[in-house]
């Protein structure tokens, strides 16, 4: 599926990092004045090696940690100032979805949907969403402890969909997925984007980043060293760009580089 919308600066962003910085107590600078915006119907992919600051960025959006400078905004709400209001507007999928092992898929979905403020779903609604993420009917009433990693990941995405929030944060959601599940996941993400969701995803999978993203940001040592839209990347080799930026040989291209 080809998506035609590109980052539009006129539209109010749903997710926004504004000089977002994080320095840990030990003095380690995990994030250094990161800026980006994700509007409705956009997928922004943060690409980087382990420890680049991708998960820290997501943690700041979820207010699991507070920024030492700058701010993360969800629908205009600074997450560290009003975390509960901000969290109402965001759904989250972690790298390794575990959920409650003694609950069935539907029980897990029901609990987290209600935790997310959605109390109106029927069992059919849960089944529809679970089917949508690719979970077979027979799995709906199975306990999570019998699920494979891919199935758990699908369940996690279903929970994020059920929250019906305008923004979705995905932290390395494709790690460990087999090619078929990975392909299904990409299609699902595109359909969510088409519904107008603002999606921020972190990954170190260059291939998937290129396939999924409307905009890609490369992070290195807490710095967002490069941002490129899908259009800009059409004529560039993302893999080469990535290696260049990782090794410190990054050059100014058609997009926006960190200064």
């Amino acid at each position: 599926m080809e998506h035609n919308s590109f980052p539009n600066t006129d539209i109010q962003p749903i997710l926004e990092a504004e000089n977002l910085s994080m320095r840990y107590e030990d003095g380690n600078l995990a994030l250094d004045h990161v800026n980006f915006k994700v509007g409705p119907g956009e997928i922004f992919v943060l690409l980087g090696a382990n420890g680049a600051g991708k998960t820290t960025t997501i943690n700041l959006f979820l207010n699991f940690i507070e920024p030492t400078d700058g701010q993360a905004l969800i629908d205009g709400i600074p997450t560290h100032k009003d975390p509960l209001a901000a969290k109402r507007k965001v759904a989250y999928v972690s790298e390794n979805v575990m959920l409650y092992p003694h609950f069935t898929a539907i029980q897990n979905a029901d609990y987290f949907a209600r935790i997310g403020g959605q109390n109106h779903y029927t069992e059919n609604d849960y089944r529809d969403v679970l089917r949508r993420v690719g979970l077979e009917d027979e799995a709906h009433h199975r306990k999570l402890k019998t699920f494979s990693k891919g199935m758990r990941q699908k369940c996690g995405i279903a929970i994020a969909i059920l929250k019906n929030a305008p923004a979705i944060l995905l932290d390395e959601p494709t790690s460990g997925l087999d090619p078929k599940a990975g392909h299904e996941f990409i299609n699902l993400l595109h359909s969510l984007r088409d519904e107008g969701k603002a999606i921020l995803m972190s990954t170190h999978d260059i291939f998937r980043a290129k396939t999924i993203a409307d905009e890609v940001g490369i992070m290195n040592k807490g710095i967002l060293v490069m941002k490129r839209t899908r259009e800009e990347l059409a004529n560039e080799n993302l893999e080469k760009l990535y290696i260049d930026y990782m090794t410190g040989n990054g050059t100014l291209g058609g997009g926006e580089d960190h200064d």
């Binding site: 979820l62 975390p83 209001a85 972690s94 979805v97 409650y100 092992p101 997310g116 403020g117």
Partner: peptide, 14 residues
């Protein structure tokens, strides 16, 4: 350890 705490507090749970 299971990651359910992250998922719970990704929502507006006091």
């Amino acid at each position: 350890e299971r990651g359910t705490l992250r998922l719970t507090f990704a929502s507006d749970v006091p």
